[in-house]
Design a protein around this nucleic acid. Structure first.
Lengths: 258, 258
DNA sequence: CCCTTTTGTGCGCTCTGCGCTCAAATGAGC
DNA sequence: GCTCATTTGAGCGCAGAGCGCACAAAAGGG
């Protein structure tokens, strides 16, 4: 006679949904959780959480240490399913490497998840020539990053406003734009320019440059971005030199994206 | 009268386990799956898979496009739970940046998952000074990488043998060691040396260097690694110069790891 | 040492979700 | 365009999975 949150839609596997929420209950500052901790964080009954955690442990996604549960590296496979699936990572790597070498800065590819930009591929050019892929997972707030504005430019203005309204917008640096109307205008700008540049809005000294990555059909699937340093001399000219190269690469990549 | 794989252990949430296997059914070359595809790949009944996929979609982890399902960026949150939780990423970042600057090469931290080494943190030093974290997810075969050997050195020899036997060991370069006995010996070597070096075993021209990262209690929690180029002159001396710095940093880091 | 609070777990009952089934859609062949 | 074959979507009755109560066992607190 207690909780009846979902009226059993008959096509919804409650146990699965609850399990996923348990995985997400881990996170910053919650490396290990006891059954009771996890129950509190998810709002589920302790017995339920216990079964779910033991299931995770049984499958190797978690480890039991006394009464504390910890996720194992295996959970990365779940996220990896997405990355490997959206062949972005693998398909794009040679292009990213080439572009990175050309412009002398690390380049990356990101997609939109809610109000965050999520990085899914990256290539760096660290003086040393051994190409080494490390990708995935990092999140940035969409409103304050060039890539976020490019990605949001694929949405309708009303949707952009709605998302902005639903996000905490911190003034991360003095230059960060946080006003909803202003941001919508910047997204519109990105739409018509076919690129976005963010000057020290995310971090002092950091300039973000992003262009949309479309497929042959012309639908935007991701954003191609790079950064440069605002404090070095001639940052402006540098950005102006980089932009056409990013766009040229985006055009080439469009041919190979499904 | 069909499948009865698990006799209901009473603490195992089947729906959850099956759901996770559905997520993993996506992956390289399987960006989008129909209900039937996913059913075949997981070996589950179509009706079951359909419910699970619809559940994923309902929660925003998947998107429906006609009869094809696709994972969304939200699944990265699941893996991210692990990364954020194992504060490795955040805690280590300043140390990694310092080390990377000191030795002039990208450095990274990895953990063991089964037979793979998984990267969980990284810092690069790409000429530009803007520190930018991109981490997570990349996998390498443990047997052929320095970090893998260091990480396996925390296991008992018998366990190492067992894992090696259960892995396909390709000769990725002429230098790759693939013999089980030889590899066990190398792991033992890593254990007594407190480090491992892999000369062009993973990729031609690439030298991997790894040391264990322990916590105060002395239990190994990860591996700290870097790479250098085998073809540049004096690679050997360079490795000899880098090793003590890696070890010194590992000692410092041990103080801050839980 | 007793009492309070927190945590772990057994177990009966109900409601979930399984997987049979059939219907609808798709498409192949003529 | 019609028929047949095949694939996909859903309804529904039944059984047993898993819910959550309630008790037990630790873990403090005074």
């Amino acid at each position: 006679m207690s909780s009846r949150p979902i009226p059993h839609s008959r096509i919804f596997v409650t146990g699965f949904a609850r399990g996923l929420s348990v995985i997400e209950a881990f996170g910053a500052g919650h490396k290990s959780l006891s059954v009771a901790d996890a129950a509190q964080r998810t709002g589920l009954d302790r017995a339920v959480v216990r079964r779910l955690l033991l299931t995770l442990a049984g499958l190797g996604y978690a480890r039991i240490d006394g009464k504390q549960f910890e996720l194992t590296g295996k959970v990365l496979r779940l996220g990896y399913s997405y990355l490997a699936a959206s062949a972005l990572d693998v398909t794009l790597q040679p292009y990213l490497a080439e572009l990175s070498a050309e412009i002398g800065e690390a380049v990356s590819v990101s997609v939109l998840d809610g109000n965050d930009v999520v990085f899914v591929a990256r290539s760096e050019q660290p003086g040393n020539r051994v190409a080494f892929v490390v990708s995935m997972g990092m999140r940035l707030p969409a409103y304050a990053s060039a890539s976020g504005r490019v990605l949001m430019s694929a949405l309708a203005d009303s949707e952009v406003s709605a998302r902005l309204r639903g996000t905490r917008r911190d003034k991360r640096t003095p230059a960060t734009v946080v006003g909803e109307r202003e941001l919508v205008k910047l997204v519109r700008q990105a739409r018509s320019d076919g690129h976005a540049v963010s000057w020290e809005e995310l971090e002092e000294g950091l300039v973000g440059i992003a262009v949309p990555l479309g497929n042959r059909g012309g639908t935007m699937v991701a954003s191609l971005n790079t950064n440069t340093n605002a404090v070095r001399a001639q940052a402006r000219q540098r950005v102006q030199r980089m932009l056409p190269r990013l766009k040229a690469m985006a055009r080439r990549v469009a041919e190979v994206l499904p």
